[in-house]
Nucleic acid binder design. Structure first.
Lengths: 372, 372
DNA sequence: TTCCCAGATGACACCGGTATCAAAACGCTT
DNA sequence: AAGCGTTTTGATACCGGTGTCATCTGGGAA
């Protein structure tokens, strides 16, 4: 038997000149490596084991003996082998790609969240494929499904408002694709969600304004179709109620989260005889519109009018006066979403972790002051 | 012979129940399709041809007879076959992925250019993998190379300032990876560049200010290390020269393209006894800083001080007063870059197209007026 | 009719990994 | 030394396409 083995080894050596004898050092001349990317076969040959064993090493399988693993690893390091993702994916039905689906390519937050997602996913060896889309498109769910199937994405992150679309989620579930949603309010018990509590920030806005003595408060809500707008609305009203300050329905406008809609709403509010002493606009864009109208009308901010925004976009700190607003840890949300997703991917059988929650917090700047 | 063929066909039919006889309609019951994604083998079997022929059809090879092509195509459509990108990539050394490399994830322009790139690349069936990086990192070139090789990207688009790094370009060339650079000024004769002529816009700024009667013009330059800053500088000086207006070196500051650096520079400029009547800041961020300082010092804009920015960022139109600035067709640049890249990929032997050029143009808003 | 050649098609190896399952090696008893 | 249950390891068939090259087909020329 022993002899038989010896013979086999011998044959192998004769056949493949490059094989490394049991205890000889790995050759230093690796000029041939330059010719092409090393493959798993090269590693196998050079370390005198089978492909499968190399495969086990690179996949950290525990079924490899310590010295074998070391030996193989040394060769891997030496020749700089990196597994081919396509081959790996083809064989194992993975792609090492994550997807990021969003609408609203203009929104600041996309870049930031993308940044966070990328940091986390890169750490785990995943790359990110981005996919902007139109949330109002009728074929959205199918489109997203096609996107993930085309690239066999290992998982997707859905940003609001796409994340609020149940069809998309259902389609992904059916396609058997893991996903994580970033949402303003829990939708189901799936626990694959990063929740951001806008409402807490909005409540803080209400309390802040109330505490400054404002009683006639104008309010520019966000579009009904956005979940976050709902949550901000809920929080704001709740905060006012806590301080026992009423909200005059006549001082409530609905905006579209755009600068222009903010201007329009502000014009209505500020041209009233009993004009408000403070205005809370549901995002910074609209708040910037309010500021502009105030200037045009010769109203001093914050002396005669306090203005509050939401989002802490770059805009907020660059306006004059700088905006009191509400900040979400956007980048961190991206990280959390990616980590959650990767966790689900690498550890499919794990008990579903609880939702991650981040809370929006008031940032006081120059645009708010005591009521006149 | 004819008999032989007939027999063969017959055998085939017997062996594979699903095969479609020469002129029989393709069966409508395709319930089995649901089981798994159809593969090229399914198509081949159902249409009674070999894999290779199907492959030819999906690759639009001209070596397929019209009726064969039709027959196969019909099956493809019917069962909704889509080639597996990983398998295809593994076999043909492609990936159908493009890369977008950028620094400065905060910059507005990244999202916009990304939008343009995505539109064009999606049209051509490519997906986009994004890769932010640190332009000052010493290992940048190697990192980018690793990025493209890991995913076997078919091509990369480099955005400034990464695009200005010759090492990165060299490394990519060595890795035999197609790339397109977005650049403010031509670097070589490679012609794989989308050029944006910042300098023309800057010249227009100079002329605009000169025409408004400004003679004492403050100038906040961008950081020397940025190519675009150079170009803006060149253009601005050129424009002034054309109008025979001098630029007092004492009124020149260098900023860092940040809001804060704009504030600092403006403070210096505006606290001089012979303070300028106009300030050109090399980007909108810094111009916003100038505006803020002007407010703080009680200077009215544009009556007492004209301010001009550059970039036409979202900020520019939302400030009060809205900024006169310079606009680049960012999204279009992204499209052009992607189209250029794809062109190179699908048509490798093509004579190198000339560089694409876009020109920055002045946008006059509210922040500039006649000199006092 | 026979020959020839271009156009169409197919058989089969291959891309670089993973999965399966059998075989080998190992450590301990008995 | 033989027996036996674990580790370790490897042979080989995939995954789903593409590339190569041989074969087949169908006119037109001889």
């Amino acid at each position: 038997m022993g002899l038989g083995v010896g013979r086999k080894r011998g044959e192998a050596v004769l056949e493949m000149a490059d094989v490394i004898p049991e205890d000889a050092p790995i050759p230093d001349d690796l000029s041939w490596t330059l010719k092409r990317r090393p493959t798993i076969n090269d590693v196998a040959r050079l370390s005198g084991v089978s492909k499968k064993t190399v495969s086990r090493v690179i996949n950290q399988s525990p079924l490899v003996r310590g010295d074998t693993r070391e030996r193989v690893q040394k060769v891997i390091d030496k020749i700089g082998f990196e597994p081919d993702l396509q081959a790996r994916g083809l064989a194992s039905q993975r792609s090492f790609l994550l997807g990021l689906v969003y609408d609203n390519p203009n929104a600041q937050y996309v870049v930031k969240i993308q940044e966070g997602v990328l940091e986390a996913s890169r750490r785990a060896g995943y790359e990110l494929v981005v996919h902007p889309c139109d949330r109002t498109s009728p074929g959205l769910a199918a489109e997203v499904r096609h996107f993930v199937e085309r690239q066999k994405l290992d998982g997707v992150i859905l940003l609001p408002p796409v994340s609020e679309n149940e069809q998309v989620a259902a389609e992904l579930a059916e396609a058997d694709c893991r996903y994580v949603r970033v949402l303003a309010a829990p939708i189901d018990r799936s626990s694959n969600t990063v929740l951001y509590y806008d409402w807490e920030g909005a409540a803080e806005v209400a309390e802040h304004l109330a505490d400054l003595g404002h009683r006639k408060i104008g309010y520019i809500a966000g579009p009904r179709s956005f979940r976050s707008a709902h949550e901000r609305d809920r929080g704001f009203r709740q905060g006012l109620a806590r301080r026992r300050v009423g909200l005059d329905p006549a001082l409530v406008e609905e905006g579209a989260y755009t600068f222009e809609s903010g201007e329009a709403a502000a014009e209505k509010l500020l041209s009233r005889p009993d004009r408000p002493t403070a205005i809370f606009a549901c995002n910074d864009e609209m708040a910037a519109g309010v500021l502009k109208v105030a200037y045009r009308m010769g109203l001093r901010v914050p002396e005669e009018l306090s203005v509050v925004g939401f989002d802490d976009s770059p805009l907020a700190s660059r306006l004059w006066p700088s905006l009191t607003t509400v900040r979400l840890p956007i980048k961190e949300m991206g990280q959390m979403a990616a980590e959650k997703l990767i966790q689900r991917i690498v550890n499919p059988g794990t008990p579903p972790a609880t939702d991650s929650i981040v809370v929006a917090r008031l940032v006081i700047r120059e645009s708010t002051a005591r009521a006149p």
